[in-house]
Every structure is written in structure tokens, then in C-alpha cells.
Design a protein around this nucleic acid. Sequence first.
DNA 1: GCGCGGATAGCAACCGGTCTCTACCGTAGG
DNA 2: CCTACGGTAGAGACCGGTTGCTATCCGCGC
Lengths: 355, 355
Amino acid sequence: MVKRTQPAPNGDASTVRDVAARAGVSASTVSRVLGGTYPVATATRAKVMKAMRELDYVVNAHARALGGATNKTVAFVVDDVTGPFYAHIARGVEEQASAEGRLCMLCTTHGDPRRILAVVETMREQRADAVIVVGGALEDKAYHDRMTHFAHALDRAGSRLVLVGRPPLGPGVPATVVDYDNEGGAFALTGHLLSGGHRRIAYLGRVPGLSTSAQRIAGFTRAHELLGLAPDPDLIVDGVFSRSYGYQATRELLASGKEFTAIFAATDMIASGVIQAVRESGRRIPEDIAVAGYDDIPVARDVYPTLTTVHVPQEELGRAAVRLALHRDELPDGQHLVLGTHVVLRESTRRAGSS
Amino acid sequence: MVKRTQPAPNGDASTVRDVAARAGVSASTVSRVLGGTYPVATATRAKVMKAMRELDYVVNAHARALGGATNKTVAFVVDDVTGPFYAHIARGVEEQASAEGRLCMLCTTHGDPRRILAVVETMREQRADAVIVVGGALEDKAYHDRMTHFAHALDRAGSRLVLVGRPPLGPGVPATVVDYDNEGGAFALTGHLLSGGHRRIAYLGRVPGLSTSAQRIAGFTRAHELLGLAPDPDLIVDGVFSRSYGYQATRELLASGKEFTAIFAATDMIASGVIQAVRESGRRIPEDIAVAGYDDIPVARDVYPTLTTVHVPQEELGRAAVRLALHRDELPDGQHLVLGTHVVLRESTRRAGSS
DNA sequence: GCGCGGATAGCAACCGGTCTCTACCGTAGG
DNA sequence: CCTACGGTAGAGACCGGTTGCTATCCGCGC
């Protein structure tokens, strides 16, 4: 007899068979009590429950996952959790996952696209029933191909790839896309600035090759064109999505002597740096320079003056991602959901004349 | 023959045996190629690798976990990921977990202590090799007992409970504690304010029954006592750790007519609301009222004026939690690590005379 | 009194890897 | 030429739950 006869000999968790032995029933019966989806006599059930309690038994999720196809797990892949924008999406994902009885794995890539691929591979091993990738995508052919490959691989394994805030991989690729109206938000915000009389608007934080950036620039440009204008390429500055970049770039821009009356920061994080630099230069916001951001993260309400920005429904993006991944039939036409965005007017763009 | 003969009949992932069949070897051989820890002839290895590539094979993490005792997973339990303080700890946890070849599960409790218990139970099922619980603990007997129970249960299963930023459960309880010098930080910060001449300091955001809060108040009080003073209980205001609370409480405090020259906000989040309310009242910071916070989250550098606060090594807390859980021998004496904190002087407490 | 069907419980075969033990190969040493 | 041994590969028993099929016991109707 190699098998232990002790209930739970301290140092190893107890199993169904331990519980069965103690309750004087078979393992199947214990399993049925656990599952609840099979008739078990009340007296038997009570005996089993008692034994489980006495042994402090918990099922082994892995053994359970081996039988069924799925692990009841959702994976969330993101650049960096400390960014408020992603953190709020993460909250939505976690909440919805939890509501759907799923666990949530958190994986960060620190901006390295190769790590995304590695992480998705790992999630394939974990048999997660949804893999949610968040953040703008690199417009790179090889990368795109690898993601397409993963979409198919996940699909074959009964899992689902969900892209949040990035463009679809193409028709026929089994992936769900949850996006927000990036271009439309930029269009509306730029329109707001233009209608406020601004004609020379600087755009800070263009990221070449990043889908999110391209869309915002597109909206920015389209709003100009609607009025028969064109943005000055000289006022569109490349950068990264960070506060310190916003601060630094603004100082340089102010020092350059270029003319402009408004700054469209690619993100609120950038905008908060912009605001600091503008104020340190002695200029007033919005009287001398109007400032606007994008994302509507909490900092937009906290800066002084409060920041006009484009609201992105972050938590809803996260929730929708999980919801659509698990109930694919909810979205009949294709697998592409676009959530709306809208401009939130605050002090940083208020015109002198306005109330 | 019920078993499929097709390699991977589209709709189900391929298994070791599928690969074995295609490579013309046995399942054990495939497993050995996978593990790498057993001599396999070069030619055989090549055949197997080729088959794996052709079938786009990935191991099933659950099957693998079923054999070994652990799941190579670390669980991170937190109130809310959108709080910057917790988000930075999360980043530390995720980074270290990733460095140690572990995956990271994210679980949020939304401040409901019952959910912590449920989550820990779930992690027991998952056979996570560490469960990291972050955030101040409720000083409640029943709750304490349940946590102690879980510590033992996890220990029995070869797993480890780690408490971050909360007091130990008691001697003999198998749990690792990674804490920071909460009381010392509050003591130093209060000392800084007192040495700046402030004698009536308001404390905003006491949370009755929360360990973190009690420790900060203790440091606050001890610094007063060192100078033969005592804080005015009337200036210690109960609240919650949020920006809006800080804003509201400050308005009420200013309107109340109570005398004070400095505000010690229990957290930076509260402080950012305090700053806004003070400035809106027309008072200057720090000339009329000095403001200080706690935690040193990014917002402390972003507010105007920049915020004096107590630096808490958030990422290191997260990393240490994972490290100690996995290499328990690293901490010889007991399982209690306390990281240091220090005051970060910024503009919000600068005296007129100082540079 | 006998047979039938519903309600329960048990047996054993999975799920997909890993690991131990055994078997086989070729070759080098005696 | 035979044996011993290093090097490899295979067979099969796990890990812990789940589940289809079977077996048993019971009450009840004829």
C-alpha cells in the first residue's frame, strides 16, 4: 500500500478520495456533491459535507480544468498597470471576469511587443478562455502576422483573443475587437479648439507607427480640413505618452518661438506636464494658451486649471472585452464593437468670453 | 477506436501523444524533449521539435501542474487596482513574479473583507504558490481568525500567505509579512512640520479600525509628545482615503473656524484634494497653510505646489513579497521584513525663510 | 409474490503530462 | 565471442476530479 491512509497527513492537501474515505462513500459521490448537478441523498450529502469541513478540503482547480476544456480564467495583457488609463480598463476586466465567475491573470509587457507574443503563448498553455490585449498596436507586418497566428491558435483551442483599443487584424481572423472612437474624439476636440478661434494648434506626442496615435492625428487633421485649413506639420511633435515628455516638449516648444495658441496633448498624462511647463513660463491657461488632453483619467480633474479632454469609457471597455469574449453571440454582425467618446469641457480651454 | 487519429482535428488542441504519433516516438520521449532534463538523441529531438512546430503544440499547464505540486502562480489580492499606491505595488509583484517564472493572478476585493476570504479560498484551489494580500487590515477578531486559518491552510498545501503593509497575524502563524515603517514615516513628517514652527496641525483621514491609519496616527502623536506637546483631538478628522474626501473635509475645516497652520493628509490622494480646497479658499501654500501627504505616489510631484510626503517603496514592497514567499530561507529571523520610509521635502511645506 | 422503474451510489475510464522502471541498442573490454 | 555498461526509448502508473455506464436497493402496481 503506497497510498496514504491518513486523512490529510499535514504537508499535502486532501483529495476527493480522502474525503470519500472519511465519509464512507466513493469518490464519485463526493464529486457529485461538489458539482451539485446530480441527485445525492440528503443524508449522504451531509456526511460528505461534514468530511469536507473536517479535512478543510478544497478542490484542485487544475485537476478540474483537465477534465473540462476551460480554466475559467481571463488573461489581461497590458503595457504597464501603473498607467491610470490601463488601470481603469484593468478594473473593468477584473470586475466583469469576477462577475462571470472567472479569475483574472495579469501580464505586463513593458512596451516590448515580443513580450506580448510570449505572454499570449503562455496563456495558450494556461487554456485561458479569453486573452485580452490592451493598448495601441505597432503597425508592423511581422508582428501583425504573429498576432493573427495566435488568434487562430487560441480559436482552435476554444479560447478567444480580444483586442482593446487597437484595430482589427483583418476579416476572417477569429478575434474580437473592442475599440473606442479615437478618431472621432480627436475630431470633436480639435473642432472645439478651432471653433474657439484657435488657428495654430500644436499637437504634442505623436508616436510614429502606433495605431492609437495615427487615429488621433487623423481626427485632428480632419477637423482642420473641414474648415478648409491644414495643421502646420511643424507644430506636430513626436514623443511618448508620459508626463515628463509633455513638460520637456512644451518648454522646448515655447523656447522655439513658434507661434501657437493651443496645445492638443496626445494624452492627459502629457497634458499634465504641458500645463506645468506653460504655467512655469508665466503664461496663463487658457487665456494665453489653451490646453486639451485625451483619455479623461482622474488627473484631468485634479490639475489646475482642470483639463478639457476626450472621455474614453475605460471601465466599460474592459467589461465589454470580457463580456464579448465569453458570449460571442451577443454581437451578431462581426466581432467589432466601437464605444463612443465625447469631449469633456473644463477650464483649460474656456474662452475669455464664455461663462 | 474512440481516440482520434488525426493530428489536431481543428477544434481541439494537440497533445503530447499527438506529437509523439507524428514524430514516431512515444509520449514519454516528447515529454523529455519538453522538459529538457533527460538525454534524448539529437536526431530524435529534432523529429519531435519538428512535429511540435507542425502541430503548433503547446503544453497544457494544468496537466503539468497536476503532477507537480505547484502551479507557478502568484496571487495578488488588493482593494482596487486603480489606486496608484496599489498599482505600483502590483507592478513590483508582477515584475518579480515574472522574473521568477511565475504568473500573476489579480484579484480585487473592493474593500469588502469577506471577499478577501473568498479570494484566498479560490487561490487555495488554484494551488498558487504565494498569496499576497495588500493593504491595511481591519482590526477585527473574527477576521483575524479566518486569516490565521488560511495561513495554516495555505502552509499545509505548500503555499505561502504574504501580508504587505499590514501587521503580522501573530507568532507561530505561517505567514510572511512585508511592511514599511509607517509609524516612523509619520513621526518624521510630523517632526518636520513641528520643527517648521507649526503647532496646530490638522490630521485629515483617520480611518478607525484600520491598522495603517492607527500607525500613522501613532507616529503623529509620538512626534508631538517628543516636544512635550499633544495633538488637539479636535483637529484629527475621520475620513476615507480619497481625493474628494480631502477636498470636502478641508472646506469644512476651513469653514469651521478652527485654528491650524498645517494639514497632515493621511495619504497623497487626500492631500491633492486638500491642496485644491486650500487654494480655492484664497490661502497660499505653504505660506498660510502647509500641506503634507503620505505614500509618495506620482501625483505628489504633479500637484502645485509639489507635495511634501513620506516615500514608501511601493515597487520594492511588491518585489520583496514575491521574493520572500518563494525563497523563505532568505529571511532567517522570523518572516517579518520592514522597509524604511523617508520624508521627501517639496514645496508644500517650504518655510518662507528657506531657500 | 413478482417484476418494473426511479433514485442513488460505485466502478472505471478518461483529461494530458511526468516520472519511474524496464527493455533494448551498440560497443568496448575481457 | 561473450558480457557488461552507457545511452536511449517505451510502457505504464500516477496526479485529482469528472462522468458514462452499471449495479443495487427501494417502493409500488399488478
